[in-house]
């Protein structure tokens, strides 16, 4: 019986969301073979949220504490993972911006393959079989990984499981490492907004808004979801300076997989679709009935956004009130 290691992410002593989802992904492989799933948390001192991981399916919760681990410390985490990797058949990491930075470093240190942005994972004998979008989501690649692969799972791919395990907390020693990259901190954006890559609902606007001030309409729609929705954008409006780059969804922006995605005044260029086509439900509002976005949207309304969006905001607010 082998085990799988899921490397979790923390910031300033708090576990990042997505830990339970990552364990659920690891269980896709472990569940079949009867493997165990251990999680590793690298932090500076105690990390809040660690005690709930047993309920999410973790057999053991390994904690590695180091003074350099307040901020993200890739060199230290790589050294720690490498020191225990021999016990595992695969290393799972969430494909967040931090996880995508970490995964290839770990793989190179272990001499292993790295599969990024994996949307589906299964055991294939001694190997791990993954599916991942390539060519901006225009094709799906199925890859078999031998050795001790590093599997970076795209957030939103697996819902958290409720398979209670012991979740026994054990500490792991941090081996000596040279800290080549020094992360000094994270500068918060001017106004605190939910990140498009993390929100359950994304309300995105494009050139059809006509003017940057009309993003206010989308903010009202987002507000109707009561803190669950983030504002996204097409590249056209980001390049025009209407909204900051962090909001851009698509091939040169962020890849999002929310439960609900609104594309409002967005035509649906392939590069935009690359960033949102794995959303669970897509709603498009566009006055051009032939806009390509309607080909991928589950539900579409053909019409003027200035008329449709306020009505939708009112209706969502009302539905939420019930």
């Amino acid at each position: 019986m082998a085990a799988i290691l899921a490397v979790l992410e923390q910031r300033q002593g708090a576990l990042r969301k997505g830990a339970a989802e990552l364990i659920a992904a690891a269980l896709q492989v472990a569940g079949v073979s009867g493997d165990t799933v251990d999680v590793l948390i690298c932090g500076n001192g105690a990390v809040s949220g660690a005690d709930a991981l047993g309920a999410a399916g973790a057999d053991r919760v390994l904690t590695a504490s180091h003074a350099d681990f307040t901020n993200y410390c890739p060199d230290g985490i790589v050294a720690t993972v490498a020191s225990i990797a021999a016990n595992y058949r695969a290393i799972f990491i969430a494909a967040t911006s931090t996880g995508k930075d970490l995964a290839p470093r770990v793989a190179a240190r272990l001499g292993s393959s790295c599969a990024m942005d994996v949307t589906s994972v299964a055991a294939a004998g001694a190997k791990v079989r993954v599916v991942r979008p390539v060519y901006a989501g225009k094709a799906l690649q199925t890859v078999d990984l031998a050795g001790t692969p590093v599997v970076a799972v795209r957030p939103g791919s697996y819902p958290a499981a409720a398979i209670a395990k012991a979740g026994m907390v054990e500490s792991v020693a941090v081996p000596s490492f040279s800290r080549r990259l020094e992360v000094s901190g994270i500068r918060a954006p001017e106004k605190a907004t939910l990140d498009v890559a993390e929100a359950r609902v994304v309300v995105s606007g494009g050139r059809g808004l006509g003017d940057p001030k009309h993003f206010a309409l989308l903010e009202e729609l987002a507000a109707a979801f009561g803190g669950e929705a983030a504002i996204g954008a097409s590249r056209a409006v980001v390049d025009a300076g209407w909204i900051e780059h962090g909001a851009q969804v698509g091939q040169t922006g962020k890849t999002v997989a929310p439960e609900l995605y609104f594309a409002i005044g967005i035509s649906g260029a392939v590069q935009h679709l690359a960033g949102m086509r794995t959303a669970k439900v897509i709603v498009a509002i566009n006055r051009d009935k032939d806009a390509p976005i309607f080909k991928v949207a589950d539900f579409g309304i053909v019409g003027d956004l200035f008329e449709v969006v306020p009505a939708l905001t009112a209706a969502i607010a009302q539905a939420k009130a019930h």
């Binding site: 393959s113 799906l140 690649q141 890859v143 080909k295 589950d298 579409g300």
Partner: peptide
């Protein structure tokens, strides 16, 4: 240590519906 098993076009999203 990795090998590509297959490359496929993504399944078409179920045909969208214009609600109105």
């Amino acid at each position: 240590q990795s090998s590509v098993v297959s490359l496929a076009l993504p399944p078409e999203r179920a045909a969208g519906r214009i609600v109105g």
